[in-house]
Amino acid sequence: MWLRGLALAALAWAAGAEAAQHEGLESIRQRGYLRICADPSNLPYSSNDPAAPGFEVELARLIAAELGVTARLEWRATYVRAIKPLRDGACELFMGLPVDRRFREGNPWIAVSRPYYTMTHGLVTRADAGSLTIADLKGQRVAVELASIAEFYVAYRDVVRGLYKTQEQAFQAAARDEAVAAFLWFPLAAWLARGRADLKVVAVSDEGLAFPIGAGVRKRDPGLAEAIDAAVERVLASGQAQEVLARYGIESARRTSREPPCSPFVLVQEKDPRETGRALFSTACSRCHGAEGVGGGTGGALPKLRNYDGGYDKFYRLVWEGRKNTAMAAFKGILSPDEVRALYEYLTSLPRQ
């Protein structure tokens, strides 16, 4: 019996040693390629079309070349659980992740490189509209994606929100004059507006709208995080990264020297968390749950949230993770833990009905 146990232990050790050989910088160099998870249909970021691969794919290939290997694309749709393939080992590199404290805290297993560009937002308007800002559009309809950062931002400005399921639909609304402007991620806005002489895109880099973006790897892969970071530095120093970004119209989307580097995104800043929660609830929750949590919103026969008494831990999980097979979306990555707490403080401060 003890021989059988020894044999099983030896097999387990061998399996562990074999698995370890497939992780880390040295194993990547030995096999000669770096696996990169990317969406096959997500231009301008990534595409499986050789004629238009997307700037994230082009940058990933440059990074792989700096490591002395080729890039192998592992195509995965990213609209649901985008980084799960990286965590599960389907690839070693995932482009386009925020260099942000909140993201690091929510995903402690990921290491993100230095940023290779700053993701900002873009205001899409008619080419002859003159110089416009969000403040100039007071009382006018601005198209935004539902539950996006852009929607949260304009909610605190005196504009009329035109809500759409996707950013592409919001763009088309502005192009058809259903809205005076669309407010989108800058790379997508620039891509959709390419070749349109009747439209222009203005980069908006206000605090809370600009995010440094880097390349992500698993921390457990030996030597890889440092190598990827150094590769990004070299690609930037050579000017190759800037050339790629310029081909996709992103050269103007850079952080200005007046903005603090890598600052965390904060939706609202209030001293009283209940007041913060009230503002957040009005923006993010009232459409489905009704004003002040009394029900009667578009979510149908939902319980009155102002009567919630399930405790904070359960409330946090519901907001953070959502509920499968329901309209309750996950707000991880949209709200911070402090903002979820503010929502809870607000709702539990209301008198029950």
Rank of each mutant, 00 (worst) to 15 (best):
P187D: 09
Y164I: 09
R196L: 09
A203E: 02
A170H: 12
A170T: 14
L199W: 01
L209K: 06
G208L: 12
E207K: 15
Y164N: 09
A170Q: 10
F171H: 02
D198I: 09
D206T: 05
R176P: 04
F186G: 03
L184F: 13
D177V: 05
W185E: 12
V180S: 04
V202F: 01
A197P: 04
A174L: 06
D206Q: 13
W185A: 12
S205R: 10
L188S: 11
A190I: 06
V204K: 00
L209Y: 04
D198Q: 13
Q167D: 13
R196P: 05
D198S: 14
A189R: 00
Q172C: 06
F171R: 02
L184C: 10
A190S: 15
D177G: 05
Q169I: 01
A181W: 00
A189G: 04
L188D: 13
D198L: 08
L209C: 08
R196A: 12
A182K: 02
S205H: 10
K200Q: 07
D198N: 10
F186K: 06
R194Q: 10
G208F: 13
A181P: 00
A181F: 02
A193F: 03
E207W: 15
A193N: 07
W185K: 10
A189E: 00
E168V: 11
A210K: 03
L188F: 14
E207C: 11
F171N: 01
L199T: 01
L209R: 05
Q172K: 10
Y164Q: 10
S205F: 03
A197R: 12
Q167T: 11
L188C: 13
F171M: 07
D198C: 12
G195W: 03
W191H: 09
Y164S: 09
F186I: 05
Q172S: 08
P187V: 04
A203T: 03
W185I: 12
K165G: 08
V204F: 00
G195Y: 02
A203K: 00
Q172F: 13
V180G: 03
A181Y: 01
W191P: 00
L209E: 07
V201G: 01
A175C: 08
A175G: 07
R196C: 09
A193T: 12
F186W: 05
A193I: 04
R176Y: 14
A170Y: 09
R176I: 06
F211T: 14
D177Y: 08
A190V: 09
Y164E: 07
V202E: 05
A170P: 09
D177L: 07
T166C: 11
P187R: 04
K200S: 02
A181T: 01
